[in-house]
Design a protein around this nucleic acid. Structure first.
Lengths: 182, 182
DNA sequence: GCTCATTGTGCAACTAGTTGCATAATCCGT
DNA sequence: ACGGATTATGCAACTAGTTGCACAATGAGC
């Protein structure tokens, strides 16, 4: 149950419309909590109904009309509560590791191409993170807020670094063109 | 759509009943693809209907009666197909990173306890993985199958190591008892 | 002024995963 | 032999997330 809180966080950082949020999810919060625009619109409706946010009273609220939201005090309180509450880590699900495990049984034929593709995707993601780091966290900025945000970004950087290294190892492990392990 | 393939993999490693599978998911495959017993029973039904597995013909198939399944050739073929098929990485969702990001906005009050708890959980998981590594992958076993399985286990070990290190850093970053960052 | 691509909001239907409970068989102590 | 814990299977209802589509408003080209 984290999507509403992801949205509250984003809205506190900056009041936004549904589409703004969708865009920001694609390039920031979405790195560790992705959401589609439909999820976001639905959730905005719920959050408004619960009194956690409200639409900024601008013009006509017709279809195809931007509607911006801001967080109300109750919303901030809820986010604070959620942040401090104990939460069990969700069980992980990683299809790639599962595939390697399956490959140990049915053979690695055909795997290499996709592993290389994943390696490439992770390299791009890492580059993107490093770009953000250079841009948003130059040395010397040490407000509490910046330090926490930087910490989160570094988690992303280190995870990508891990995957790149692991995939490289995995590719070395793969046998020549064809082999069957069963 | 990976659960059926996780089950096929597990059944290829060893034909099992629903409960056997549930147990094995808890201590092996489930480390990177968790599933509850209900998911497993439902999926076993589907896989049987699709002709990928069949119940081992033993005794009465009544309720409360063990029923074991084995993989049929079609099931193995399907697993092979899936293993080789290209798959996009699913977007990650990590509630803990999200919380840290929220904490950057609403303050870190109350976070420390739960971070310590997570740190502890990751330490235990790492210990468990290392135990398995010592037991199942002693130096010198170099069959293709063992090397791949070991590779997967090492991913688990390195990920836990990462989280332990990152959480340690995060805890250092937290200010004394109370502070507000908004 | 009209048409067409783009922007922005949203509904509906679906898939995957979770939670809570029901029920049958078996095993174990008495 | 009976009663309660444990083992084993499963249904039903729910929550979260995804996919596909509909439709209004806006702006740009002609």
């Amino acid at each position: 149950m984290s999507l509403p809180h992801a949205i509250l966080t984003a809205l506190l950082e900056k009041p936004s419309s549904g589409l703004d949020l969708t865009r920001r999810f694609d390039k920031s919060i979405g790195y560790f909590w992705s959401a589609t625009h439909q999820q976001i619109y639905r959730e905005l409706g719920k959050l408004e109904a619960e009194g956690f946010i409200r639409a900024l009273p601008t013009e006509q609220p017709a279809r195809g009309q931007r509607k911006s939201y801001e967080v109300l005090p109750a919303g901030r309180a809820e986010l604070q509560r959620w942040t401090a509450a104990a939460q069990d880590p969700k069980p992980h699900r990683d299809a790639l590791l599962l595939r390697l495990r399956a490959a140990a049984v049915v053979g690695t034929a055909g795997l290499e191409t996709d592993l290389r593709r994943h390696l490439d995707l992770h390299r791009r993601q890492l580059a993107e993170y490093e770009e953000i780091e250079k841009r948003d966290f130059p040395p010397g900025n040490d407000s509490a807020q910046a330090r926490l945000q930087h910490l989160v970004l570094r988690a992303g950087i280190e995870l990508e670094t891990f995957w790149i290294q692991w995939l490289t190892e995995a590719l070395e492990e793969l046998p020549e063109p064809a082999e069957q392990a069963s």
